[in-house]
């Protein structure tokens, strides 16, 4: 007699995916809220400081690339991507235009820690000539052990 067996009831191994949509949307919302376009994507080692103040959003950005990348100066209004400039006069023109629009305009200076100070000095001088009042020198956090 053939042995009649009941159909095997496979215990279906399932991953519960009903909450996946919730999790995914939560992540999307997080990234949308924290999304910020980085106007200057030049890779550099920022100097480390103990004192760090929050830089204002939408401040104009001036970046000085590391010496091995040609110490190129880039400027951005804080809303568009940074564009390279070839002479220091262009920095003065750019900063003067921004200050003319808003006399209290803040500027962020993003420079590599190995940049020669002479280059930074030129940019600081350009900003002073353009009557800029507030500058933020972008930096990384200095850890307590290095303090």
């Amino acid at each position: 007699m053939a042995l009649i067996r009941g159909r095997d009831r496979g215990t279906g191994a399932q991953i519960f995916t009903a909450s996946m949509a919730d999790i995914v949307f939560l992540l999307i919302v997080f990234f949308v809220l924290t999304y910020k376009v980085e106007v200057d994507k030049t890779q550099m080692n920022l100097p480390e400081t103990w004192i760090r103040k929050k830089v204002p959003e939408k401040a104009a950005v001036i970046s000085i690339a590391p010496p091995d990348k040609g110490s190129t100066i880039r400027v951005s209004t804080g809303e568009e991507m940074a564009l390279p400039v070839s002479t220091i006069e262009e920095v003065i023109t750019f900063a003067s235009t921004e200050v003319a629009k808003n006399p209290d305009r803040e500027f962020i200076l993003k420079a590599d820690e190995n940049s020669p100070y002479a280059r930074v000095d030129e940019v600081l001088d350009a900003l002073k000539q353009s009557k800029v009042k507030y500058i933020f020198l972008l930096s990384e956090q200095l850890t307590a052990s290095e303090k």
Partner: peptide
């Protein structure tokens, strides 16, 4: 696309 950009630094009033 959302790089964790540095958003702090030393302030300096001219």
């Amino acid at each position: 696309t959302s790089a964790f950009s540095a958003t702090r630094g030393l302030d300096f009033a001219l």
